[in-house]
Design a binder for these strands. Structure first.
Lengths: 137, 137
DNA sequence: CTTTTAATTGCAATTTATTCGCAATTCGTA
DNA sequence: TACGAATTGCGAATAAATTGCAATTAAAAG
C-alpha cells in the first residue's frame, strides 16, 4: 500500500512530524470507503495500539489545516473526515439510514458574489436512498 | 407587529399548541436580522420571562419539523435557526472573520442521482470577504 | 551515533451544545 | 368548565470535542 509522506513544506504551517498516531490515522483514512468520524477511526485503532481519542482529533486537525484531510459536519452536528482528493467531494446523504453516496458531477456553479472571493464550497444533498424508499412502501 | 399563527393542520404532525415559550421564540426569530443559535435566542429571553433553554430547543425542534424554521449546522458543529422563507438559504462564509452573507441565487442544480430521491440540500461557500481581503493586503 | 529541543502524545479532566425524564402545568376542545 | 393530551420547568445526563501538563519522541544539527 502506498505510503504518502506526511511532511510538507507549506510555508504557512509548521512541518508535520511523522508520528505513530498520525500514520495510523492516515492509513485508516487511506483504506476507508466512506468518510469516518473520529470515533470510528479510534474504534479501528483499538486493540492494536495505545493511541488515544484526543490524539486522533489532534491528528485530524493538523491534517485538515494542511489540506490532507477534509472535514465535513453533518446535520446532526457531528464531523466526518476523509482524505482530500483534489476533486470535489459531494455526498447524497440518506436521511433514513445515514448512508452516504458520492456524487460524481459537481452541481454547483458559482454565481456572482459581490466582493467575495470563493475558495471552496461544501454541498450535501439529503433525501431517501433506493433501499429505504422500498422499505417504506 | 404581525403575529403569525403557529397552529397548522399539517396531517403528518400533531397540532402545534400556542404556548408562551413558542410564541416568544417565534417572535425573536421574526425580528432577527441573522440566523440565531438556541443560546442567542435564550439570551434575548432572559429577564423577561422564566422560559428555559430546553424549551427553546423544543420549540425550535417542533418548528423545524413543521417547516416554520430552518436549521443549519455550521462547520463548528453548532446549529443556528431562522424562519423558513420558502427560498433556499445559502451562505457565503468568510474563513477570516466567520461572517455570513446570504447568497441570493441558488447555484445548485440536481444532477441525476440514480435511485436517490433528494428532499433538500445544504451548500456553504467558503472564501474571503471584501473586508478581510483588503485587510490582508 | 549522540545530543538537543520543539513538537507531540498519553492521559484525565473539562467544557459545552443538546437531549432527556418526570411531575406539575397549560392549552384547546368538548 | 372540565378533561385529556401536549407541553413546560427544572435538573440531571449525554456525548463530542477541547484542553492542560508532564513525559515522550521525532528529526535536525553536530
Amino acid at each position: 500500500m502506498e505510503q504518502k509522506r506526511l511532511s510538507t513544506n507549506c510555508e504557512q504551517f509548521a512541518t508535520i512530524k511523522n508520528t505513530k498516531p498520525r500514520l495510523a490515522v492516515y492509513n485508516i483514512l487511506l483504506n476507508a470507503q466512506t468518510p469516518l468520524s473520529a470515533k470510528e477511526i479510534f474504534a479501528q485503532l483499538n486493540g492494536e495500539s495505545d493511541i488515544w481519542l484526543s490524539s486522533v482529533y489532534r491528528a485530524l486537525d493538523i491534517f485538515e489545516k494542511n489540506n490532507l484531510v477534509s472535514k465535513s459536519v453533518l446535520p446532526n452536528g457531528k464531523a466526518i473526515y476523509e482524505l482530500t482528493t483534489g476533486e470535489h467531494n459531494h455526498y447524497a446523504i440518506c436521511t433514513e439510514c445515514n448512508g452516504k453516496t458520492k456524487i460524481d458531477a459537481c452541481p454547483v456553479s458559482y454565481c456572482e458574489l459581490k466582493g467575495f472571493t470563493p475558495t471552496s464550497h461544501k454541498l450535501e444533498i439529503y433525501g431517501v436512498c433506493e433501499n429505504c424508499r422500498q422499505k417504506k412502501q
